[in-house]
Simulated scan of single mutants.
Amino acid sequence: MEKSERRQKLLIHARDVFAKRGYHAAKVEDIVTAAGVARGTFYLYFADKRAIFEEIVDRFIAKLAMNIVRVDPYDQARSVADQVSENIRRIVSILLEDRATTKILLADALGVDPAFDRRLHSFYDEVGKLLEQSLRDGQELGIVEIGDAAMYAIMTLGVVKELLYQVILRGWDHPEETIVEEIFTFLRRGYLRVEPSKSRAQKRR
């Protein structure tokens, strides 16, 4: 097995251990046992438990950030409604596809230590600012209700986080498509001033 493969194997098994036991209860010994490698092998790639935890979270956050796309109201190929739906679908899909890391992000990442907390808060701040700016652009174009865009952004993040918390940590059984549809409908009945796409409207008939 090549070094990159062994490193990836450690990351995958560490993710599962953290998701099952939580950050503070998990031990390096648990990770190496799950991965089937010697303890010394772990330290060839990671300085300690925090280092591997940090990489798991950082990778996941980077993947999420790359999939948040700013809505372009001048896009001739896709309506604003479709673009909003696609954004919601991409994010929900990533979060549900890797439930172990999502559980870590929702339940264990905050509180590791002050430095890590600052990084996590920084990520949420960046996502919030991106969403806030998109909402301000939408207000200027008349597709978002006039109001406090920063507040709208925070509430939107709260909706997504709480829904995923219920699904992943509490076992609430709802299909991915239903979650996407209901988030979009909730926003459209709130601050969004866009009509559903034709395909969406037909689906609801």
Rank of each mutant, 00 (worst) to 15 (best):
Y23C: 01
I168L: 03
W172H: 08
E86P: 00
A100M: 05
K203Y: 15
E195F: 10
E132Q: 14
F184C: 08
L10P: 04
V127E: 08
A26H: 03
L64A: 09
D148T: 09
K63P: 04
I94S: 06
R118T: 13
M66V: 12
A65E: 12
K9L: 13
D82C: 08
A47P: 06
R136D: 02
S79M: 04
D148H: 11
I61H: 00
V71G: 09
Y165G: 00
E55M: 10
R6S: 07
L131I: 14
Y45V: 01
L95V: 01
E145Q: 15
G40I: 03
V159C: 08
Y152M: 14
S122L: 15
P73R: 11
R193D: 02
K161V: 04
L164I: 07
D148I: 08
D137M: 10
R39C: 05
G171R: 00
I12F: 12
K27T: 15
R205P: 06
Y43T: 07
I88P: 02
Q76K: 15
G40D: 01
I146E: 15
G142I: 05
I52K: 04
V160M: 12
Q202A: 15
Y45M: 03
E145W: 03
E182P: 04
R170W: 11
R6P: 05
R200Q: 14
S79T: 13
V112Q: 06
M151W: 15
F46N: 09
A150V: 06
A51C: 05
T102H: 02
A107Q: 12
H13N: 15
A107V: 10
F46T: 08
F123D: 00
A25M: 10
G128V: 01
V17C: 09
F42E: 00
D173P: 02
F18D: 04
M151R: 15
F53T: 03
Q139D: 05
G36S: 06
D16M: 07
L169S: 00
Y124D: 07
V159G: 00
F42D: 02
I168C: 00
M1S: 13
E126Q: 14
L130C: 08
K161N: 05
L64Q: 14
A34E: 14
E181S: 13
A81H: 03
E29H: 12
R99W: 03
E195H: 10
K20R: 14
V144F: 02
A19D: 00
G128T: 08
L141H: 15
P196R: 07
P73M: 06
E182A: 11
A81N: 01
L141N: 15
T185V: 15
R118P: 06
A149H: 02
L157F: 06
P196Y: 08
R39A: 10
L135W: 07
E177H: 10
E86I: 11
D137K: 09
F123I: 05
A19W: 02
E29T: 14
A25S: 12
D98E: 12
G40E: 06
L131R: 09
R193S: 06
F186Y: 13
A150M: 06
L131Y: 09
A34Y: 07
D16S: 08
F46R: 03
V84T: 12
T185D: 15
G40T: 05
V84Y: 07
H13R: 13
A19T: 08
V17L: 10
A38F: 05
F60L: 05
V180N: 06
Y191T: 00
A14V: 03
V57F: 00
I31F: 02
E5W: 04
